[in-house]
């Protein structure tokens, strides 16, 4: 599941029916038939399990029998050191992971989009295709590819650094506690820059020529034109990119599992909520799987994502000025 799933976040919610839509009474049966398959699959496989997972977080399994324990799982998760240490470390790592994305992904995306949207740029389609290519690859491919490239055994990176006289800078970044998480975040940014780049590029193309021409008549050109005229117009798009990144980062899993395994090594230094959930729920070399604790962690992730999306929808998106052309 990539961020592409969440593109329609900005679509207006109510009133899906067109203004001239047909009245319903005559078509009641047809409406039911048309809606049934989608609603059935969506409700049964997505909505019910989502809420059932919240419910399971309130139970525990004793001798194979499910027993209601109220909030005990959450008390353990936040209160008992054997859980809470991992929870806080995963949460902290997840925040770092997200912050690195925010610091790099949007600015790089904006810079690339700004260059691509220059009028009469040659080779634009070629560049766009190339920039979006990593986004199409699976985390498994991306993870192993970078693991090989950064591997001290293969030595491609030291060789390249050596070519510019920086051989001493090389370290096995993925293997060191201090740098593994940052390295993984950079790999993830490398993979996903394509999405903000594409959305912002589209937003820049959507700015009418009259606005740009008016700015030029006032003598605002080049970089200051970008800062003063175009950037304010694309803030809403940057907001969408940020919330997509937020949701994506707080349920990320694949890349870290591929590169560092379920234990999110070295010494849990790359553990984020997704890997913590997987380990707890599914079990691993160190512990047996515990679906109910897994459900409790999923509930915490659910709450974090809900809070993030609400802050965006009600706090940020409403205050942003949108310009109608």
């Amino acid at each position: 599941m990539t961020d592409v799933d969440h593109l329609a976040l900005d679509a207006p919610l109510p009133a899906l029916a067109a203004p001239g839509a047909a009245p319903a009474r005559r078509h009641r049966l047809h409406i039911a038939v048309f809606l049934a398959p989608a609603l059935l699959v969506y409700t049964a496989v997505m909505i019910v399990p989502l809420f059932d997972t919240l419910r399971l977080a309130l139970y525990t399994r004793v001798d194979g029998v499910s027993a209601f324990v109220g909030l005990a799982n959450f008390r353990a998760l936040f209160g008992e050191p054997r859980w809470s240490e991992h929870l806080w470390s995963a949460l902290g790592n997840n925040l770092v992971f997200f912050l690195i994305h925010m610091l790099l992904q949007n600015p790089i995306g904006v810079a690339l989009a700004a260059m691509l949207s220059l009028p009469r740029l040659r080779g634009g389609a070629f560049y766009r295709t190339a920039f979006f290519l990593p986004t199409m690859l699976s985390f498994v491919i991306v993870g192993f590819t970078w693991k090989l490239i950064l591997s001290p055994i293969w030595g491609v990176t030291p060789m390249l650094l050596g070519a510019v006289g920086l051989k001493g800078w090389f370290h096995p970044w993925l293997g060191q506690e201090s740098s593994a998480l940052i390295t993984l975040a950079l790999i993830s940014v490398w993979q996903y820059v394509g999405i903000p780049m594409m959305l912002i590029y589209a937003a820049l193309l959507g700015i009418p020529d009259e606005v740009v021409e008016a700015a030029e008549l006032d003598g605002i050109t080049g970089f200051s034109q970008f800062l003063k005229i175009k950037l304010p117009l694309i803030w809403p798009t940057i907001g969408i990119c940020s919330i997509l990144t937020f949701v994506g980062n707080f349920n990320a899993f694949d890349l870290i599992y591929t590169v560092q395994g379920a234990l999110a090594g070295p010494n849990f230094s790359t553990d984020i909520l997704g890997t913590f959930l997987f380990r707890t729920f599914f079990g691993n070399q160190l512990q047996l799987g515990d679906p109910n604790m897994g459900a409790a962690i999923a509930t915490v992730m659910f709450a974090i994502i809900l809070v993030g999306v609400s802050v965006y929808l009600f706090g940020i998106q409403r205050r942003m000025r949108r310009y109608q052309f």
Binding site: M1, L13, P49, T53, A298, M301, I305
Partner: peptide
């Protein structure tokens, strides 16, 4: 129904994995 479907756009299905 539009709002009901919007929930599925915002919340990743992965969070329901335990129950799924």
């Amino acid at each position: 129904l539009g709002l009901f479907l919007a929930l599925g756009i915002m919340v990743p299905i992965r969070l329901g994995t335990v129950s799924i």
